[in-house]
Amino acid sequence: KLETFPLDVLVNTAAEDLPRGVDPSRKENHLSDEDFKAVFGMTRSAFANLPLWKQQNLKKEKGLF
Protein backbone atom coordinates (compact mmCIF):
# COMPACT_ATOMS: atom_id res chain seq x y z
CA LYS A 1 0.00 0.00 0.00
CA LEU A 2 1.19 3.47 -0.89
CA GLU A 3 1.97 6.08 1.74
CA THR A 4 -0.89 8.54 2.21
CA PHE A 5 -0.64 12.29 2.68
CA PRO A 6 -3.07 14.99 3.82
CA LEU A 7 -5.11 16.63 1.10
CA ASP A 8 -3.38 20.00 1.48
CA VAL A 9 0.00 18.40 0.71
CA LEU A 10 -1.26 17.06 -2.64
CA VAL A 11 -3.76 19.61 -3.97
CA ASN A 12 -2.42 22.24 -6.38
CA THR A 13 1.17 21.17 -5.65
CA ALA A 14 3.81 21.24 -8.38
CA ALA A 15 5.58 17.95 -9.11
CA GLU A 16 8.88 19.16 -7.67
CA ASP A 17 7.20 20.15 -4.39
CA LEU A 18 5.44 16.81 -3.78
CA PRO A 19 6.68 14.44 -1.07
CA ARG A 20 9.29 11.94 -2.20
CA GLY A 21 7.76 8.92 -3.93
CA VAL A 22 4.52 10.61 -5.03
CA ASP A 23 3.80 10.13 -8.74
CA PRO A 24 2.53 13.54 -9.94
CA SER A 25 0.19 11.84 -12.42
CA ARG A 26 -1.32 9.67 -9.66
CA LYS A 27 -1.66 12.02 -6.67
CA GLU A 28 -5.09 10.56 -5.91
CA ASN A 29 -3.46 7.22 -5.03
CA HIS A 30 -1.79 8.91 -2.05
CA LEU A 31 -5.05 10.09 -0.45
CA SER A 32 -6.56 8.16 2.44
CA ASP A 33 -9.78 6.35 1.54
CA GLU A 34 -11.72 8.92 3.56
CA ASP A 35 -10.10 11.90 1.81
CA PHE A 36 -10.55 10.22 -1.58
CA LYS A 37 -14.27 9.82 -1.00
CA ALA A 38 -14.59 13.36 0.39
CA VAL A 39 -12.82 14.87 -2.63
CA PHE A 40 -14.36 12.84 -5.44
CA GLY A 41 -17.69 11.92 -3.84
CA MET A 42 -17.20 8.26 -4.74
CA THR A 43 -15.14 5.22 -3.87
CA ARG A 44 -11.86 4.37 -5.55
CA SER A 45 -13.53 1.51 -7.45
CA ALA A 46 -16.29 3.80 -8.76
CA PHE A 47 -13.63 6.31 -9.83
CA ALA A 48 -11.61 3.55 -11.54
CA ASN A 49 -14.69 2.55 -13.53
CA LEU A 50 -15.05 6.04 -15.02
CA PRO A 51 -13.65 6.70 -18.51
CA LEU A 52 -10.09 8.06 -18.37
CA TRP A 53 -11.15 11.48 -19.71
CA LYS A 54 -13.68 11.81 -16.90
CA GLN A 55 -11.09 10.80 -14.28
CA GLN A 56 -8.71 13.44 -15.66
CA ASN A 57 -11.40 16.12 -15.68
CA LEU A 58 -12.29 15.37 -12.06
CA LYS A 59 -8.61 15.43 -11.05
CA LYS A 60 -8.17 18.83 -12.78
CA GLU A 61 -11.31 20.17 -11.12
CA LYS A 62 -10.06 19.08 -7.68
CA GLY A 63 -6.46 20.30 -8.11
CA LEU A 64 -5.01 16.79 -8.28
CA PHE A 65 -3.91 16.76 -11.91
Rank of each mutant, 00 (worst) to 15 (best):
K1E: 11
K1N: 13
K1F: 12
K1T: 12
L2T: 11
L2M: 12
L2Q: 13
L2R: 11
L2I: 14
E3C: 14
E3F: 08
E3Q: 13
E3D: 11
E3K: 11
T4L: 11
T4N: 07
F5E: 02
F5K: 03
F5A: 03
P6V: 03
P6H: 04
P6C: 05
L7C: 07
D8H: 15
D8K: 09
D8T: 10
D8M: 11
V9T: 08
V9C: 11
V9K: 09
V9L: 14
V9E: 06
V9A: 09
L10F: 03
L10Q: 02
L10C: 04
V11I: 14
V11P: 02
V11T: 09
N12L: 08
N12F: 06
T13E: 06
T13V: 14
T13G: 11
T13K: 12
T13C: 12
T13Y: 07
T13L: 10
A14I: 09
A14L: 12
A14N: 13
A15C: 15
A15S: 12
E16C: 14
E16N: 10
E16G: 11
E16Y: 03
D17S: 10
D17I: 06
L18P: 04
L18Q: 04
P19N: 03
P19R: 03
P19H: 04
P19C: 06
P19E: 04
P19F: 01
P19D: 04
P19M: 03
R20M: 15
R20N: 15
R20F: 15
R20E: 15
R20K: 15
R20D: 15
R20S: 15
R20P: 15
R20W: 11
G21C: 10
G21H: 08
G21A: 08
V22A: 04
V22K: 02
V22P: 03
V22E: 03
D23V: 05
D23Q: 04
D23M: 05
P24R: 06
P24W: 03
P24I: 08
S25I: 10
S25G: 10
S25E: 14
S25F: 15
R26G: 07
R26N: 11
R26P: 02
R26T: 08
K27H: 03
K27C: 06
K27E: 03
K27S: 05
K27N: 03
E28S: 02
N29A: 15
N29H: 12
N29W: 13
N29R: 12
N29I: 09
N29V: 09
N29G: 08
N29L: 15
H30M: 04
L31T: 01
L31S: 01
L31G: 01
L31Y: 01
L31R: 01
S32C: 06
S32N: 10
D33C: 06
D33Q: 05
D33E: 13
D33N: 08
D33L: 06
E34T: 10
D35C: 07
D35K: 02
D35L: 05
D35Y: 01
D35Q: 06
F36I: 01
F36V: 00
K37G: 10
K37T: 13
K37Y: 15
K37M: 15
K37S: 13
A38W: 12
A38Y: 13
A38H: 11
V39D: 00
V39S: 04
V39Q: 03
V39T: 10
V39A: 08
V39H: 05
F40Y: 01
G41I: 02
G41W: 04
M42V: 05
M42H: 01
M42K: 01
M42Y: 05
M42E: 00
M42L: 06
M42R: 01
M42N: 00
T43I: 08
T43S: 13
T43Y: 05
R44A: 04
R44Q: 06
S45N: 13
S45A: 14
S45G: 11
A46R: 10
A46I: 09
A46L: 09
A46C: 11
A46P: 00
A46D: 12
A46F: 09
A46W: 06
A46Y: 09
F47N: 00
F47T: 07
F47L: 01
F47Q: 00
F47G: 00
A48Q: 13
A48H: 13
A48D: 10
N49M: 14
N49T: 13
N49D: 14
N49K: 14
L50Y: 04
L50W: 02
L50G: 00
L50M: 09
L50T: 01
P51Q: 04
P51D: 06
P51W: 01
P51K: 03
L52W: 13
L52H: 10
L52T: 09
W53E: 12
W53Q: 09
W53F: 09
W53M: 08
W53V: 09
W53K: 08
K54R: 12
K54L: 15
K54C: 14
K54G: 06
K54P: 00
K54M: 14
K54V: 13
K54I: 13
K54E: 13
Q55K: 07
Q55I: 03
Q55S: 02
Q55G: 00
Q55V: 01
Q55W: 00
Q56F: 11
Q56S: 10
Q56K: 11
N57C: 15
N57M: 15
N57I: 12
L58V: 05
L58P: 00
L58I: 09
K59E: 01
K59A: 04
K59T: 03
K59S: 03
K60I: 14
K60W: 11
K60V: 12
E61K: 09
E61F: 07
E61N: 08
E61D: 11
K62D: 01
G63A: 04
G63W: 03
G63E: 04
L64P: 01
L64V: 04
